[in-house]
């Protein structure tokens, strides 16, 4: 993959074009699954995996440079730990606020059943988990790829 050329090799034009169409759709579907986690099956983890698969598809079809991957990995780790911290903060906020004062307390208004904005902190938690899982799985993939490229 890492050659002296300006652009990395990647796969053929057919694969590249189809990925260009598919990746945004897959990513959007992941977001849908994540934000509807409290209404339908799915949620943070499932949505995050789908989002990460869009990301992985892009890297696989277009290829990437080693130094770029390393920078990417650092960004992904940052995103991952930030999302995790936010999730923890959300749980601790329930502990600190006087209305609930319990770990993972649902301090927001529950809303009416069946609507997208309902369920208090659960959709917010789902979104943080989705970001975290997306970043984590991508960074696992990128880490293994970096390892392989260093070998070559």
């Amino acid at each position: 993959m890492s050659n002296d050329n300006q652009t990395p090799e990647g796969m053929t034009i057919v694969v590249k074009k189809i990925c260009q169409f598919m990746a945004p759709t897959i990513f959007l579907f992941g977001i849908y699954i994540t934000v509807h986690g409290h209404l339908t099956p799915g949620g943070g983890f499932t949505g995050g995996v789908i989002m990460a698969s869009a990301f992985i598809l892009q890297i696989l079809s277009y290829g990437s440079f080693l130094d770029k991957l390393q920078q990417e990995k650092w960004h992904l780790e940052l995103t991952e730990s930030l999302a995790l911290l936010c999730f923890l903060m959300l749980a601790v906020l329930g502990l600190l606020l006087a209305t609930t004062s319990v770990f993972f307390g649902n301090f927001l208004h529950r809303g009416s059943f069946g609507e997208l904005i309902s369920g208090g902190i659960i959709p917010i938690g789902n979104i943080f988990v989705g970001i975290e899982v997306c970043a984590a799985i991508s960074s696992i993939f990128v880490a293994l790829l970096i390892f392989k490229d260093k070998e070559a």
Binding site: I137, I140, A143, L144, F147, K148
Partner: peptide
């Protein structure tokens, strides 16, 4: 399982 297997594969590599 995902976490375990990712770690296991990286150790295998």
């Amino acid at each position: 399982g995902l976490a375990t297997k990712a770690l296991m594969l990286s150790v295998a590599i």
